[in-house]
């Protein structure tokens, strides 16, 4: 449980961090809350030569709303999100997701930016950010770009970020009128990660039918994904138990499903459908009540 030696850097601004990363290339690794990277270093599964600790960059710790879009700085901790009155009101899915992450200690130190950049296939945030159709802001010495969530997760522990890019913020739309959302998760009893985690957002039209449904699923496949089959099946339908169940049965359509010691691919596929149904039911209920 002793990491290999490394050089430590603690830049104070995004610009300073970007130039450091540009110089270090693939030898550099960003440290935020340290709750994904540090365990891997202690197990010597990761051995970066240079650690760029962005934890002191104050500008990255904000949570704010601008014109119906919520922007969350990369350094916002899970607890910051869980306890944010703004998010509770304007984007409750994030609050509900944050609550399901790890334990109190992890939520107190771990950050949303760190978790997304790590791209763990069983992390919670990817499901929520996908369901919300969010985008990810990445800054490097070359400039800033915005990466849509659906293009961000590439494979197991692999995101669209380049070595020299810093994930600076996440932008998601606030909860619109006649909208409801929910995050439901089966926790792995050891790691607390998602065996399956489903984030759903449902928008109803004036007639009470589903105008738009969005479902992000984590824990099931090598990367979190949007369950487009489910979404298509529900669009335009009334959010009845029957319609939701039929739609949820497509939760893992065309997906290469993970299998491990705790849950086989068959079981996960089954769980994906059940949890999708339950998350959609809850989201639809909330949408109807809003």
């Amino acid at each position: 449980m002793i990491p290999q030696s490394f050089e430590y850097h603690a830049p104070r601004t995004v610009a300073e961090a970007s130039s450091l990363l540009a110089r270090l290339g693939s030898d550099g690794k960003i440290l935020a809350g340290g709750h994904s990277l540090v365990p891997m270093m202690k197990l010597r599964l990761a051995a970066p030569k240079h650690i760029v600790d962005i934890g002191r960059i104050a500008e990255l710790a904000h949570i704010r709303e601008e014109d119906g879009t919520i922007q969350i700085g990369a350094l916002a901790t899970h607890f910051n999100i869980e306890s944010s009155p703004l998010l509770k009101d304007r984007c409750p899915l994030l609050v509900e997701t944050a609550r399901e992450i790890g334990d109190v200690q992890v939520r107190n130190r771990g950050t949303i930016g760190g978790s997304l950049a790590h791209a763990d296939p069983a992390a919670d945030w990817p499901a929520a950010i996908l369901a919300l159709g969010g985008e990810i802001l990445a800054v490097s010495a070359r400039g800033e770009r915005r990466i849509p969530a659906r293009d961000f997760f590439l494979d197991v522990m692999t995101s669209a970020l380049e070595f020299d890019e810093i994930l600076t913020a996440i932008r998601v739309p606030a909860l619109p009128a006649r909208g409801g959302d929910a995050y439901l998760k089966l926790h792995h009893p050891a790691s607390g990660f998602a065996v399956v985690g489903v984030a759903a957002r449902v928008l109803l039209n004036a007639q009470g039918a589903v105008q738009e449904a969005a479902v992000g699923i984590t824990g099931v496949a090598p990367k979190a994904y949007r369950a487009t089959g489910v979404e298509a099946a529900l669009r335009g339908k009334s959010p009845s138990a029957r319609h939701i169940e039929a739609a949820a049965s497509h939760a893992a359509d065309g997906i290469e499903v993970n299998s491990d010691l705790y849950a086989s691919a068959d079981y996960r596929r089954h769980l994906a459908a059940i949890y999708t149904r339950r998350a959609l039911e809850r989201a639809a209920e909330r949408a109807a009540a809003s």
Binding site: P39, L43, D103, H188, P189, A190, S191, F193, L261
Partner: peptide, 16 residues
Amino acid sequence: LITGSLMDYAVPKAHQ
């Protein structure tokens, strides 16, 4: 040993 860390070996936790 394929349950060689506490990410895989599930010790009980208070919230359970």
